[in-house]
Amino acid sequence: MYALSRRFFVSLATGFAIAGAIAPAGAQTSFKIGISSPSVSILSVYFAEGEIAKKHGLNLEVVSAEGGTRGLQVLMSGEIQAMHVGLAPMVQANNKGADLRMIGASLNTLPFVIYATKKSDPPIPKGSVIGISTFGSETDIAISIVLRNMGLTRKDVEITQLGGTSQRFAALVAGRAFAAPLLEPSITAAEEKGFTKVIDLYEARTPWVFDGIVIPREWLAKNQQTATNFMKAYLEGTYKGLSDEKWAKEVIARRLRTRDEKVIDFTYKDYQRLMTRDASVSIPGAENVFARLKEIDLAVVSDKLADHIDSRVIDSLKKDGFISGLEKQYSIK
């Protein structure tokens, strides 16, 4: 339906009979996944890209959508088949009538560290500019929660959309924002710059579903095999990344565009520490997401897990021994 409706819109908006050319032809093996920005949580996708994906019959392409919610819009347009995004923005979209499912998670905790350019009291003064990726994204929700804990509301500060963690860090350096939630490799860079740590959400070990693979339900129903192949490639990427440090660091250097050994090292350590190995979506994490969304007055139309999460692909890969096979092959538990 997504491809069809897209075709329809072309003719509607342009009144132009070129619709047929737009629909991706012969898309059986091509698989595009959107990401919000290159960061530690996306590494498994980068590891799967290329060789491993090819082995599982996919031509995997990573598209930068610069922001979670924007990526979901792109996903709904049918331009990409999956989006790597958090549960909270996905639930928001489903509340408004989208029909998306998370089929696997990469990060089941809230890993942000919020940095400010200088020390102040209170740590985030009223009226200061705070950078997020896009409205409604994980960064936005994290900021809402933190502000609430500080007794502030979103109206007390100026929240501005800056894009992914590297753009947010650049904005801090340039003085365009006072504070922003960061991820590796920007955390290391922020420490080097001498920025002030406002709060380390990772230390708090909040159960959360921070990032995962999101797919339209209708697409999933028709392309179960492609989705399974993708998850196989994704999992194998994860295991290979965890076992082959040298290769993994090469991929990090290439995809994160850095030659800084320290940044690469910290990013890889973060990856080992944070990644969910079997890609299953944390149930307490999901429940926490629902609870917190309600707290900050974002309606949750349905908090039934089955309306947002589809664990069948991962379950079948567990059952048929694919994951335990990987554990043996890469000798990782």
Binding site: R6, F9, A13, R70, Q73, E79
Partner: peptide, 13 residues
């Protein structure tokens, strides 16, 4: 963006 995505087509439109 919702209709045509982030690529060339949304700008074309």
């Amino acid at each position: 963006v919702l209709w045509f995505g982030i690529g060339i087509w949304s700008k074309f439109a």
